[in-house]
């Protein structure tokens, strides 16, 4: 998918509204009222005069929309948010992909589970700015019929680390743009694409946080799976039809759920049987029906009570 056709698609939605308002504006109504030849000539003159002004208006309006950057996706909006108000040459910074969804609709985690598709992002970035991989907040379990999907409802901010080259010119302004392809689902799925953009100035000084977005960034970071405390011990053993995951975490665990990072490891919808023990837990994960080759490592996010941790351990 070339970048320019994504942009075209997106511009289409931007222009849709201003065009609509022109159709309802007084200038055009004069034209509509014209019946005789003479009157029509008059209206044509007026249109010659009014037309460029309206066109300029449309252009300006579109420009402000591009800066505002919230764009339509099926059953919601997507927007690029910045954590800080400017880019500092030679430093890392974070951009967030903020999705807002109508009630009942969801988008997907890095592993969508049994159905659906994760959002995919193609960046169009100026020279000297590089995007890292998306950091995904913990998803919800989304049971669908006899299946299990992993995703987000209402709102989610996907975090994207960025790196700015030390060679960037302070005083310039940079435009960051993301082509997004995604599936938005409820009981049915609608696929769509959008182009979200954001302009940021380059400044030498340490940039202050963007107050409007800082709450969303804080919440997204809190929802990322955390590294395990070094004192915790985990072991996973491969049985005929299941993986036995045992964790020693210093206290008895009453609630646990494992979200697999990769497909074809476990049966997503199968119950995960928890056996609390004195200093941890044992969790039984049913192997996937599509599971054919043994896996070296079990990778994913482990939810213990309210807290989520990254798990990546060798399989015995």
């Amino acid at each position: 998918m070339p970048a320019n056709s994504l942009a075209k698609q997106n511009l289409g939605t931007h222009f849709a509204f201003p065009r609509g308002s022109v159709a309802a504006s007084p200038g055009v109504r004069i034209h509509d009222m014209g019946t005789g030849l003479k009157k029509r000539t008059t209206t044509t003159r007026i249109r010659h005069f009014v037309g460029p002004i309206f066109q300029l208006g449309i252009l300006l309006f579109s420009c402000t929309l591009l800066l505002a950057s919230a764009v339509a996706i099926p059953h919601g909006t997507a927007e690029l948010l910045t954590e800080r108000t400017s880019i500092q040459p030679g430093h890392h910074f974070y951009i967030g992909l903020n999705f807002r969804l109508e009630p009942g609709w969801h988008i997907y985690w890095i592993n969508p589970g049994d159905a659906g598709e994760s959002p995919r992002v193609t960046w169009q970035l100026p020279a000297g700015v590089h995007a890292g991989t998306i950091e995904w907040p913990m998803p919800k379990r989304l049971p669908a019929f006899t299946l299990m999907d992993f995703g987000y409802e209402d709102q989610v901010l996907l975090l994207v680390p960025m790196k700015a080259s030390p060679k960037l010119d302070a005083g310039s302004s940079l435009s960051l743009s993301a082509g997004i392809k995604l599936a938005v689902c409820r009981d049915v799925c609608v696929t769509g694409r959008a182009q979200a953009s954001l302009s940021l100035p380059v400044r030498k000084e340490t940039p202050p946080p963007d107050e409007a977005a800082s709450g969303l960034f804080r919440a997204a970071r809190r929802a990322l799976p955390q590294p395990m405390p070094p004192s915790w011990k985990f072991k996973v053993v491969s049985r005929k039809d299941s993986f036995q995951l045992a964790g020693s975490v210093g206290h008895s665990v009453q609630q646990a759920f494992f979200f697999p990072l990769l497909a074809n490891q476990i049966e997503n919808a199968a119950p995960q049987t928890l056996r609390p023990v004195k200093s941890g837990f044992e969790l039984t994960l049913k192997k996937s029906d599509q599971f054919l080759k043994p896996i070296d490592r079990l990778q994913g996010a482990l939810l213990l009570g309210e807290k989520a941790y990254s798990l990546n351990i060798p399989v015995h």
Binding site: A115, F145, C185, V188, Q290
Partner: peptide, 15 residues
């Protein structure tokens, strides 16, 4: 390649 993750919409089974 005898097994892969199928992709698409969920099958709309009766609940």
């Amino acid at each position: 390649t005898a097994a892969t993750r199928p992709y698409g919409c969920s099958v709309k089974y009766a609940n």
